[in-house]
């Protein structure tokens, strides 16, 4: 789906719980669009704990979550997979 809005959150250098709160706030803001599959949140983080806390929370809300380990950071995608 090429018309999916992708919102990038660069939280490199931030650690928990600040990362989580930032991401939760964005999820609250875009909840309806994420649910409808119109928006995907793409989070860049280098804090390992975040790759556990964010997906756990997002899944409890019923969102699809994908975590990719890139070279220098992690990429967490929240929202319906293409």
């Amino acid at each position: 789906m090429s018309d999916v809005q992708k919102i990038e959150l660069d939280i490199l250098g931030q650690v928990c719980p600040a990362c989580l709160l930032v991401v939760l706030r964005e999820m609250n803001t875009h909840r309806q669009r994420i649910k409808n599959g119109e928006t995907q949140l793409i989070i860049k983080t280098d804090h390992r704990d975040t790759t556990r806390t964010i997906p756990e929370s997002a899944r409890k809300m019923g969102y699809d979550v994908k975590v990719r380990n890139l070279e220098t950071y992690y990429e967490i995608t929240i929202g319906k997979n293409e």
Binding site: L21, L24, N28, S57, M61, G62
Partner: peptide, 20 residues
């Protein structure tokens, strides 16, 4: 930052998903 508001919003989503 209003963390309680953020978490409340998150809980709302969790409950909504739970109810579904």
């Amino acid at each position: 930052l209003d963390p309680i508001g953020i978490i409340a919003g998150s809980f709302e989503q969790v409950f909504e998903y739970l109810n579904e």
